[in-house]
């Protein structure tokens, strides 16, 4: 499905850009975004190294396993395919708590670590496992306890009560999370989204409803 989204975005951009005479802006945006993407990734190297280093200590000290065991009741429902004391669960917990607290810098490295651990359990290496999709549903709809950035903007713009949006933000993001995770759990059973196996045409988007 990412295939379709990707080509869709580009096709619409070129057609609309041509129709509205903004092709030069579209071209500039393509080059600027490409450079920005690399700067973003390189900027991640330092924090990635920091958190992956700390995670390694946590693993060797057995903390990751202890944390995973603590999570067993929730994890059994959300990630039935992940063994109860697997380090993936610890990485997931740390990633989710970091993003709930608005620590984006810590959340991304820990999330990528979680994906690597889930990939170790994944039988078909080029196909998302149920656990991965559930984890990303949790992640893309992340509950926000402290919308720090937006509070800062509101302060700058002279809001009388900059934090009044905290309650609706928590409620709305909680709804988003519940819906995304429920959707992930329900959709994983549909034949159109079925897990690995057929594998012959791995470039095809998996949502074409093959027989």
């Amino acid at each position: 499905m990412l295939n379709a989204v990707w080509i869709g975005l580009i096709a619409v951009a070129v057609v609309v850009g041509a129709a509205t005479g903004r092709l030069d802006a579209v071209t500039k945006a393509a080059f600027d975004s490409a450079r920005g993407a690399v700067e973003l990734a390189i900027g991640l190297v330092g924090v990635m190294a920091l958190w992956l280093g700390v995670m390694r200590i946590a693993e060797e000290a057995g903390l990751a396993r202890a944390l995973a065991r603590l999570l067993r009741p929730a994890a059994r429902r959300l990630f039935p395919d992940v063994p109860a004391d697997h380090p993936a669960l610890a990485a997931i917990l740390l990633n989710v708590s970091a993003s709930w607290l608005g620590l984006g810098n810590a959340a991304t490295p820990l999330g990528l670590k979680a994906m690597e651990e889930l990939q170790k359990l994944n039988p078909a290496k080029d196909t998302a496992s149920n656990a991965m999709v559930t984890f990303l549903a949790l992640n893309t709809s992340s509950i926000t306890l402290v919308p720090a950035t937006i509070i800062a903007v509101r302060v700058t713009l002279g809001s009388a009560n900059p934090t009044e949006i905290v309650a609706p933000t928590i409620l709305a993001s909680a709804c988003a999370t519940v819906v995304a995770v429920t959707a992930a759990k329900l959709l994983e059973r549909l034949p159109a989204f079925r897990a690995a196996g057929s594998g012959a045409h791995e470039d095809d988007p998996p949502d074409e409803g093959r027989p």
Partner: peptide, 14 residues
């Protein structure tokens, strides 16, 4: 980051 190409229901759920 982990080389997944078939994303299944991830886009729909997100």
């Amino acid at each position: 980051a982990v080389g997944i190409r078939r994303t299944r229901h991830a886009v729909a759920a997100g």
